[in-house]
Design a protein around this nucleic acid. Structure first.
Lengths: 215, 215
DNA sequence: CAATTTTTGTACTCTTTCGCATATAATGTT
DNA sequence: AACATTATATGCGAAAGAGTACAAAAATTG
């Protein structure tokens, strides 16, 4: 987990004139993200992050600023990565029912993963954190929630045009139910409810949103 | 918020022989609950609770044990209070559609309330907390989630018997969607999304679960 | 009224944590 | 080669926080 090998210096042409960084900010941010994601803002100390990244605190301050700034950047990277990894699932050319199930299952498996047990969704954790009182954070979290709503909404609107949903289906309503499913999956995963008990909820959501199988 | 008046000693016949408590444990627990609910486990110090209850730390330790034990008891009281206040809504004799909407709206307004801004659902916050690694806590949280599932499940089963839902409706599936709605309401409330933007989700859930109004 | 029991309040220790000061190292510039 | 510039490493200082020791206070019991 720690980057200590001197070989991984930034590959970009060295920009400044001083001593070059011995680490890649992106990597350090990903490592910080892991800790925040597991333990939350308040329960994570800068020493924890220092240990996870192999950087000492002054380097962290130099690169990212204080703990709050670091959290915001780590969460920003999380959002970017989620967008990147889920975008293809949303635009895949595949029957709606299959596609929705695939998205929800991918989300669940992500939420169940983690070095120290199920982590849930970082957006949900951030909302639950006391740090949500920070306007910058609840701005980002609000964007993330609305972004998920919109991604599902577009998917259902396209499906309706393609005749996979009734003409009078309301994409926004279905998107809200899909987002709600994402949220309940995250909470149940984080609460240590076993995968086998959570899986049926995915099928329930697919049936609720897309209608019964043979319909 | 603080109980300092000497008049509120426990009314129960004094049980022991030593100096009597100058506070009611139930009240202190409710005050501790408020702080944990707003700020979470890690970000709440015993000094915060001491300030909120008016008790000093040794009294807290004497009455409730350490911070973890205090959290578990505060969360236990939360669950008890929620069960008490929501039970009548679940068993009310009322059309299903109205009843579901009333329950979801009551939940949302609870989640939007709080001395320092929207607090969300304490169960969801506990699940998101790093303290969820504690087996006692994730046991309680799991029970709470399943309890909500079961309460909705019973309600939908009764509604089906009463002809308010199609004969082939699956109460458990509908319960999962209702619980998911509860969870998304909590997250959105906590994320500072305005009430007016969240309210439509309640109608979406009612339509999704009970069918279109005139159907 | 003295002895016992339990709670309360003050103060203490030990640890953790944040943020920074300062010195050293590694690079580019002249 | 000397200088400027930026990064790293050690470690300091101040504050917060958890848990407890101990003495004073308030009740019951004999």
């Amino acid at each position: 987990m720690v980057q200590k090998t001197p070989g991984n210096a930034p590959k970009a042409a060295s920009r400044g004139r001083g001593r070059p960084r011995a680490f890649e900010p992106e990597t350090a941010l990903a490592q910080a993200m892991d800790v925040f994601w597991s333990d939350g803002f308040a329960a994570t100390s800068l020493d924890d992050i220092s240990a996870a990244t192999g950087l000492n605190r002054p380097s962290l301050y130099g690169a990212f600023g204080d703990k709050r700034a670091l959290y915001l950047q780590a969460y920003g990277q999380y959002r970017k990565r989620m967008n990147e990894s889920f975008a293809p699932l949303f635009t895949a050319r595949e029957p709606l029912r299959t596609k929705l199930k695939r998205i929800l299952t991918a989300a669940l498996d992500l939420y169940l993963s983690g070095p120290e047990g199920p982590r849930g969704c970082f957006t949900v954790l951030s909302a639950a954190s006391e740090a949500i009182a920070d306007p910058d954070l609840h701005g980002l979290v609000g964007e993330a929630i609305h972004g998920t709503d919109r991604a599902f909404g577009r998917m259902f609107a396209n499906a309706r045009e393609a005749g996979e949903l009734p003409k009078d289906a309301d994409p926004r309503r279905l998107a809200h139910m899909a987002s709600a499913t994402i949220h309940t999956l995250s909470i149940r995963a984080r609460a240590r409810i076993p995968r086998a008990e959570i899986l049926p909820i995915i099928d329930d959501a697919v049936v609720t949103i897309c209608g019964p199988e043979s319909g």
